[in-house]
Design a protein around this nucleic acid. Structure first.
Lengths: 216, 216, 216, 216
DNA sequence: TATGAATGAGACTTCATTCAT
DNA sequence: AATGAATGAAGTCTCATTCAT
C-alpha cells in the first residue's frame, strides 16, 4: 500500500510524506478506537498501525482525548454533507430516495471503518460529554431534521401518510445507527447475518408502515 | 429472596452480611459499568457505590473481568425468562402482545439500570469475545427465536403478512435494543426525547408494515 | 490423625483440644514456612493446615513474624539439648560418636520437617536480624562449641590429629547444615540422591582427614 | 563489550543508555534479591538501586519473575564456563587444581555479589520449580560431573584413593556452595569468621581424606 | 475461645505523556 | 519533523490484621 501511494506522490519516494501524517494517524486511530474502544486502545497500537512512533502522535494531536475527538469530528461531518448533497439533487420518490440513502450508507459507511464511529460515540458518550454534545448537535439533530424534512415532503406529496415526522425520522435513523453499531459489536457472532437483507427488510417494513394505503 | 432473608438478618445491622453482599456489589457494578464502560470504571468506585471496601469485592468475585461477566450473566437471564413466560400465557393478538412486550420492556428494563447491559455488551463485545458469544447465544438468539416464532404464529393466524420471519424479528428486536442503548448514551442530550412516544411510534410503523392490509 | 489423638486425651473427643492448638499451629507453620519461605507463605494456608481459622492464629501468636520466630525457637532448642545429652552419656570413640550424631541427625531431623528450619534461617537471616542473631548464638555457636569440644577431646585422646578445632567444627557442622538445606531446595531435582550415602561419604572423608595416621 | 561501547556512548550522559540498562538492572536485582530474597525485594528498590524508574524495568524485563530468572541465568553460566576453562588448561596435581579452584571461587564469587545466587536458588527453589530445574541441570549437575571427572582422574593417576567419585564430588561442591550460602546468611553474625581459613581448613581435611596414604 | 467477614496498606504492572537527541 | 527511552501516576489485586459476633 505505501509503495504504490508514495510513487504517485511527487518524486521523493524515500521520504515520509509529512502532509499525510495527520490523515494516516486519524485512520489508524479510527480503526483501533472502533475496534477496542477508547480506553482499551493503546497509543502504541495506534502509532504502530499508522507506521509512526508514539512521540509523533503528539506532534499532531494534543493527546489521546484530542485524538479521539478529532477522529469523530473529522470523519463524521463530511459524510453528512455528502448525504445531504445526495438528497438535494434527487429527483424521484422519497421512497426511492430512502432506498438510495440506505444503499449509500451500507456501501460507504457500514462496510468501512467509518461505521465504528457510531459505536464509539455510544460507548463513550458519558465519558466525553462535550464530544457527545457536539455529536448530538451536529450529527444526530442535523440528520434527524434532514430526514424529518424528507418525510414531511413525502406527506405533502401524498406519498406518506400523516404522522409525527420527528419520531418517524428517529425510527428511520435508528435503523441506520443500529446497523452500524451491530457491525462493530455482535455481528461477528451472527453467522448468517446479511447486512443488505437486514436493511432491505427493515426499510420494507418501515415504508409499508409509512406509505399511504394506496401507494406501494 | 429479600423477604425471607431480611427476617433472619434483622439483628446484624453492622457488618457480616455475606448473603447480601453479592447482590449489592452486582448492583453497584451494573450501575458503574453501564455508566462509564468497563475500562473507565474503577473498582474503587464500585466498592464505594456498594458501600464496601475494595478488598471485599475480591471476597465475592475473582476480579474485574469476573465481576463484569457476572453482571451480564446474573441480570440478563432472569429477564428473558420473564419475557418468555409473559408471552406463553398470553391470550390475544400478536399485535397486542408486542405492545405489551414493549411496555414491559420500557417499564422494567429501559427505566431501570438493566438497560445498561445492552450498551455494555455493545461496547465491550470485541474485548470480551467469550462473554459476547455467551450473550449472543443466550440473549440475542434466544429472543430472536422467540420473536420469530411469534411472527410466524401471527402469519399462520392471518394477522401478519407473509415475510422473512428471521429478519422481521431482527427488526423488531433492534427497536428494543436500540432504545436501551440510546438510553445510556445520547438520550441525556436529546431533550425532548420521550421513550414512550418513541416506542409507540416505532411499533406503530412496524405493525403497519407487518399487518395484512385488511387488518389494523 | 485427629481421631486417634483425641481419643487418647481425656474424654472430650468431640471438642477441640485447646491445649494442643499452639503446637498444631507451630507444626503447620513449620511445614508451610519451610516449604515456601516466609513471604510466600500465607496465613490462610497455615490456618487451613492447622485446621483452625485465620483469626485463631492471632489468639496464640502476635502475627506472622512472631509465628515465624516461634517456629524457629520452639523447635530448635530441644533438638540441641537432645544432641548434647546424647553426647554426654556416650562411651566410645569420638569417631563413633560422630557417626551416631549424623545418624541421629539424618533420622530425626533430615527426614522430618525440622530440617526446614535451617533453610528458613538461611533464607530469612537478613530479613530477621534479631532472630538470626538469636539463632546464631543459641544454635550455631552452641553446637560449634559442642563439636569443637568433641574434637579437642579427640585430639587429647590421640584419636584426631592436632588442628584448628574451631574451623574443624565448622567443617563438620557445615556437612550437617548443608544436608538439611539441600533437602529443602534442590534434593527434589537430584534424582539419585541418597542422603545416607551422602552423609556417610562426607563423614568418611572428614574422619580420614581428621584421624591420626595410625588410626582408622 | 564495555571498551567499545563506552567510546560510543560518551556523549550521552543523561538518559538513553539502552545498551547499559539491562546490565545495570541485573546487577541491582542480583544485589537486592540476594540480600532480601525474592518476595521481600520490592521493584522500587531494584529500580532505585539501578538508578532508573520503576517503569523502566518493564522496558527490559517482563516482570519480577522474569527479572529473577534473568539474574540467575545471566550471571551463572559464564562463571561455570570460566571454571571449566581454568581446569582444562591446568598442568599439575589435582590437589593443587582444587586449591586453585577454591581460591578462584573465593575471590571471584564469594567476595562478590555473585555468591548471592546460591542462596537465592536455595531459598526459592520450591517457588520456581522450572528455574530450579534449569539451575540443577546447568549448574549443579554440570559442575558435579566436572568435579567427579577431576577426582576420577586423580584416582587414575594414583593421587587420590579409590572412592565413590559422584559422592566425593558432592562433598567437595557442598563446601563451595555452603560457603556461598553462609556468606549471605549468618556470616555477618559470625564475627571471627575468616573465609580463607574456612576454605583452607575444609579443603585440607577433604584432601587428607582423599589422598592416598603415601601422598600429602 | 473461636470465627471469618471486612479492611486497607502496599505491591506489581500498565500506559499516556514528555523530552533529549 | 521524528524518535523512543524514560517516567510516574493510577489502577488492579493480595493478604496480614482486626473485630463484632
Amino acid at each position: 500500500m505505501s509503495e504504490l501511494d508514495s510513487s504517485t506522490r511527487e518524486s521523493c519516494r524515500w521520504r515520509r510524506r509529512k502532509q499525510d501524517r495527520p490523515a494516516e494517524i486519524l485512520a489508524a486511530a479510527l480503526k483501533m478506537f472502533s475496534m477496542k474502544g477508547f480506553a482499551a486502545t493503546k497509543l502504541d497500537e495506534v502509532a504502530k498501525e499508522a507506521g509512526v512512533s508514539k512521540g509523533t502522535l503528539y506532534l499532531y494531536f494534543d493527546g489521546k482525548e484530542a485524538l479521539f475527538k478529532a477522529v469523530v469530528t473529522e470523519f463524521v461531518l463530511p459524510q453528512i454533507a455528502k448525504a445531504e448533497e445526495q438528497a438535494e439533487h434527487y429527483k424521484g420518490s422519497i421512497k426511492d430516495l430512502m432506498f438510495k440513502l440506505l444503499e449509500h450508507w451500507r456501501i460507504n459507511i457500514l462496510q468501512t471503518e467509518l461505521s465504528g464511529i457510531s459505536k464509539m460515540m455510544i460507548a463513550e458518550a458519558a465519558n466525553f460529554p462535550d464530544l457527545a454534545n457536539f455529536y448530538f448537535e451536529n450529527v444526530i439533530l442535523r440528520t434527524r431534521h434532514f430526514v424529518a424534512n424528507l418525510i414531511e415532503l413525502a406527506i405533502a406529496r401524498g406519498e406518506f401518510r400523516a404522522c409525527n415526522t420527528d419520531y418517524a425520522a428517529r425510527s428511520f435513523l435508528s435503523i441506520m445507527v443500529f446497523s452500524a453499531i451491530w457491525q462493530h459489536s455482535l455481528a461477528p457472532f451472527d453467522e448468517d447475518y446479511d447486512i443488505k437483507e437486514y436493511l432491505n427488510t427493515h426499510l420494507d417494513i418501515f415504508l409499508r408502515g409509512m406509505l399511504k394505503d394506496d401507494q406501494g
